[in-house]
């Protein structure tokens, strides 16, 4: 593990701690899908992305993970993180526009890939070197508008666009493959004209490699295989982790499990 990888893993650890703190607020949080994408967000925001690049959280219900990133960057304070779910807080359950770096309100699924495609197209038309990263949920791919956008970006060869699919395999009530299956996902994305890479979404080194610009000139889809609730044993791989309210004892247990798993191989 090189220094950069270690640094990113430390960031991801802190993102998860903040997510758990938010889930321990009065209203709870979409904790499972926020924990599953923590390594992806850490890798993107603290290594891959340059200042000229753009990030869109299409799976807006992972707002706690995004707020954790904002706190890690110092764009919001730690005290504000703890305001999540409390009256008057601007940290809503889905990210509102107006927060630092939040250009569009997301949370209604199926919007991000179109928005990202428009931005990537604008960059191409203006001859600007901008990469646009969209983080989509896997359940989100059941929205038809996503496939309109995938078809469009593939057709236009929008090489500046990258969609990362947080493939934790679960949605609110069931496994995606039990609800409306997405497989063979890589083959589908490839067939839509995307360069497609599959990667362990908790392996930072592998993520860094997978997020490198594609040489093909095609838009890039990274299927990041993740575990819902990653980092907390009693949440991992459980559909019920989708939305949870952590009591004080549960929060303590969750943080202890997170600490215990720190440093383990991905």
């Amino acid at each position: 593990m090189n220094a950069t990888t270690g640094r990113i893993r430390d960031v991801a650890y802190r993102l998860r701690r903040r997510v758990l703190r938010m889930a321990a607020g009065p209203l709870g949080a979409h904790v499972g899908g926020s924990l599953s994408c923590a390594d992806i967000l850490a890798t993107l925001h603290f290594d891959v992305m340059r200042t000229c690049d753009t990030f869109l959280l299409s799976k807006g219900h992972a707002a706690p993970a995004l707020y954790a990133v904002l706190a890690e960057k110092g764009l919001i304070g730690e005290a504000e993180v703890d305001s999540y779910g409390r009256p008057g807080s601007r940290l809503l359950g889905h990210p509102p526009r107006g927060l630092p770096g939040v250009e569009f309100p997301t949370g209604s699924l199926g919007h991000g890939v179109s928005l990202g495609a428009g931005m990537a197209l604008a960059a191409a038309m203006a001859g600007r070197d901008e990469r646009v990263f969209v983080l989509a949920g896997d359940g989100e791919l059941q929205e038809g508008s996503v496939w309109e956008a995938l078809m469009f970006a593939g057709h236009r060869r929008l090489g500046g666009l990258t969609v990362v699919v947080d493939r934790n395999g679960m949605q609110l009530t069931a496994a995606t493959e039990e609800c409306v299956g997405l497989e063979p996902l890589a083959a589908r994305l490839t067939a839509f004209g995307w360069e497609t890479r599959e990667v362990d979404g908790h392996d930072v080194e592998a993520l860094r490699a997978a997020l490198a610009p594609p040489g093909s000139g095609l838009p890039l889809a990274v299927i990041a295989r993740t575990v819902k609730g990653r980092g907390v044993r009693f949440l991992e791989g459980k559909v019920s982790s989708h939305y949870a309210v952590l009591t004080e004892p549960l929060l303590r247990r969750a943080l202890a499990q997170l600490d215990a798993g720190r440093g383990a191989a991905p």
Binding site: S114, A117, S145
Partner: peptide
């Protein structure tokens, strides 16, 4: 639907 989103991205 995609048209509206792409347009928003262009406008942004």
């Amino acid at each position: 639907a995609n048209m509206m989103g792409v347009a928003a991205g262009l406008a942004a």
